[in-house]
Design a protein around this nucleic acid. Structure first.
Length: 293
DNA sequence: CTTGGGTCCTGTGCGC
DNA sequence: TGCGCACAGGACCCAA
């Protein structure tokens, strides 16, 4: 099975990089709004604000995309569970993946170059909003720290200051899996990469956050950063390949060590364990009973 | 404040 | 082949 799309932080960052060459300094000449709402109503003045605007930059915060415009407001997009950004050049309409149904193209913008950037979201769990410059948006206000910086190869590499998780985990009785999924604890982790991180860290997802040792807590941020950085690096290359073939963005393939591998052998050399799947707070957890405690 | 569960919505894959 | 069901990347919201 190929072509799964997984909008966690690495995929959003990959989308950002894919969109950048099409949107940087571009002018938006047309806007299409296919329906008045996704998860929530779209802002009534969305089309008015975007039409004629120049895109000054494209940033990411956690799993959110932020479009900086020469306007009082910027554009804020979250892909939810099934959101994708598609790039369609003039005359390329026939090359779309037939599995991505045009009836879920809920929103798109067209640049002066004729490039269409389409927001497609079957389940409509995504969000699109405007964000006033200099003001805190309620969706962003309570996000925890970024798990590092992930500059594109062409961008300046910043020195990462990894978050210290000790204060937020102290005394917490909730499972570490649930806490790392909580965007207020650390921003950007989703179900797939939480499972991958805890496998690499050798930590049982069921353990209470407050029960982790100092060594485990100190090691987690580095593990998180490494898993996400590897996924971004892998996503970048497959993005290029895929775009040549179909013109789409947002696809990423990765060899997960535990996610989706229920009943299969643990990949740690010499380990005889079998990957188990179970449910935690309504979501699938995967772990190796031999490696994780 | 912390926590656990329900909810939004469509598509896909599996067992029967 | 058709049908029903479980499950899927997220995160808000509310009850206890």
């Amino acid at each position: 099975m190929e072509g799964e799309e997984m909008p966690e932080l690495p995929e959003v960052e990959t989308v950002r990089r894919g969109l950048l060459p099409h949107l940087q300094r571009a002018r938006i000449r047309r806007v299409h709004i296919g329906r008045p709402d996704l998860r929530w109503p779209l802002p009534p003045d969305l089309g008015q604000v975007l039409t004629g605007a120049h895109v000054l930059g494209l940033r990411r915060r956690s799993k959110y995309l932020l479009f900086d415009l020469d306007r009082d407001e910027g554009l804020l997009i979250h892909l939810g569970m099934s959101g994708r950004m598609l790039i369609v050049q003039p005359g390329e309409d026939g090359q779309r993946d037939p599995a991505i149904l045009p009836r879920h193209d809920h929103f798109w913008i067209e640049t002066d170059a004729g490039t269409r950037v389409i927001y497609n979201d079957a389940r409509r769990f995504g969000m699109i909003d405007l964000i006033r410059k200099g003001e805190a948006h309620p969706l962003l206000a309570r996000l925890g720290p970024e798990p590092g910086s992930f500059p594109a190869p062409s961008e300046d590499s910043g020195d990462d200051v990894l978050p210290d998780l000790a204060p937020v985990l102290a005394g917490r009785r909730a499972p570490i899996k649930a806490l790392l999924l909580d965007q207020r604890v650390i921003a950007g982790l989703g179900n797939i990469y939480v499972n991958e991180v805890l496998f690499r860290a050798g930590i049982d997802p069921c353990r209470a956050g407050g029960a982790l040792s100092n060594v485990e807590i100190k090691g987690l941020p580095g593990q998180i950063r490494d898993v996400l950085a590897e996924a971004i690096a892998a996503g970048g290359s497959s993005l290029r390949d895929h775009r040549q073939a179909t013109g789409e963005l947002g696809y990423f393939q990765h060899a997960f060590r535990v996610y989706g591998r229920e009943g299969q052998p643990c990949l740690r050399p010499g380990c005889q364990g079998v990957i188990q799947r179970f449910t935690q707070s309504g979501r699938s957890s995967f772990s190796c009973p031999e490696c994780q405690s």
